[in-house]
Amino acid sequence: MKLFRTAAAAVLLVCIDQAAFATTQNVIFNGTITATCTLVIATNGTMTASADLQSLSSHNSGGSAGTVTLTTTGGVSLSVDPVTTTTVPAADVTATTWTPTYSSSGAHTITETGSATAISTPGADLVSVHLAGTKGGSNRFASGNYQATVTLRCE
């Protein structure tokens, strides 16, 4: 009888222990991502002159757009600034109108525009940046080196 009582007590203790091990606790993980934007310039663009020498553009034959990869959480805006920094040959003394534009493919499709575009959803894109210089009237582009800087902004 004493042996039986001892055995029963041991079984009870084991059960109590098992009940204690069976409890669970949740571990909570929190994370916050604020609006972010990464621009990585892959290639700069190249402009070529048109046959009538009134256009110097990345759209012309032989020209190429600059390419930029954009990665964002969304909640940002993409835009280009008016071109203010240019270098022209000394022989070019007439006015040029510079028009920067961009388009995007990937998570967000943006048809070519010069205006700001709101990006509300996350994703990655390849952004093509174009630049076109034009001269009016009888003005023509001169021979020599041209250089212009386009600012692509994500904010």
Binding site: I41, T43, N44, V129, Q147, A148, T149, L152, R153, E155
Partner: peptide
Amino acid sequence: ESIPFPNQQTQIRAQICG
């Protein structure tokens, strides 16, 4: 702001604004 590839014909300045 940065121009990672300067001295090219058409440079792109990447600008991230907060």
